[in-house]
């Protein structure tokens, strides 16, 4: 069986997907770093071909619909194991059925990709609330996040819309990447902090006020830690100011 290897970027993945779709026999897609050589498998580096990647976008949007493209992109951002092959199966189905494919909600191929897309969309929405900025000495707002999925590209538009006049950084510490918003321009870059940042003098006091507010807002007679855990999973709390982050 042939396995197409991609370099981790979406563009390279789309290149691999396009190559795999052209072959009729069984093939697979895997990330370079994670793939292990098997006795009967043949590895082919897909490379990174912008023209093929763009054609794949057209494939999803025109043969499927804007919705298909949205689900494909979000499912890729899930970084879930097996997402690549799930996307290949989904793309094959779109090739066969066209835009009717997304109606097949009980079909496992559609359900899997829609499901991955929904969990990525869900986490991105949660983080519109969970991002916590801290003001640095130079007035830049800095937030550290560690989401399960690679949701950074889905968050930046939201924060550009509301904090457009500030300089800010959202740092995905789990992936060592950051979105940097400076003077109205947005860039993505690898980021590994060199040391503890220096905060604005007022920062501690604002955080203390917020923690006080948060504590006070709970109604004692309705205490329900299970419901709280359901809504704010423990794994997210270390970067939330009100939980000591």
């Amino acid at each position: 069986m042939r396995t197409y290897l991609y370099d981790g970027t979406f563009e390279s993945f789309l290149t691999a997907l396009s190559l795999a779709l052209e072959r009729d026999e069984d093939c697979a897609i895997a990330r370079e770093a994670g793939a292990e050589a098997g006795l009967f498998s043949e590895f082919v580096n897909a490379g990174n071909d912008p023209a093929r990647a763009a054609a794949m976008r057209d494939f999803f949007e025109e043969l499927g619909s804007a919705e298909s493209w949205h689900h494909a992109r979000c499912a890729f951002l899930s970084e879930a194991s097996g997402a690549e092959d799930a996307l290949l199966a989904y793309a094959r189905l779109i090739k066969e059925k066209g835009r009717g494919a997304d109606d097949m909600l009980a079909d496992d191929r559609v359900k899997r990709v829609h499901g991955l897309s929904a969990s990525v969309g869900g986490e991105a929405h949660m983080f519109k609330g969970f991002v916590r900025f801290k003001e640095l000495a130079d007035k830049t707002l800095y937030a550290r996040i560690e989401p399960d999925h690679n949701i950074l590209p889905l968050l930046t538009g939201h924060f550009k819309g509301r904090l457009g006049e500030f300089n800010w950084v959202i740092h995905d510490a789990r992936r060592g990447r950051a979105a940097l918003h400076f003077k109205g321009r947005l860039v993505y870059a690898p980021l590994t902090p060199a040391g503890a940042p220096e905060f604005d003098g007022k920062e501690d006091r604002v955080q203390a006020l917020w923690r006080h507010f948060f504590k006070t807002a709970a109604i004692k007679e309705r205490t329900n830690p299970k419901l709280q855990r359901q809504n704010v999973p423990l794994k997210y709390r270390k970067n939330l100011t009100e939980f000591g982050g």
């Binding site: 609330g129 006049e165 807002a217 709970a218 205490t223 830690p225 419901l227 809504n231 704010v232």
Partner: peptide, 25 residues
């Protein structure tokens, strides 16, 4: 200026009673 509203609303945290915090109430 600063800020925008979100059509479907955004919850920012949940207090010990499991109720959402969205606004400085």
């Amino acid at each position: 200026g600063t800020g925008a509203a979100h059509q479907s609303g955004v919850c920012h945290s949940w207090t010990a009673d499991g109720r959402c915090v969205s606004l400085l109430k």
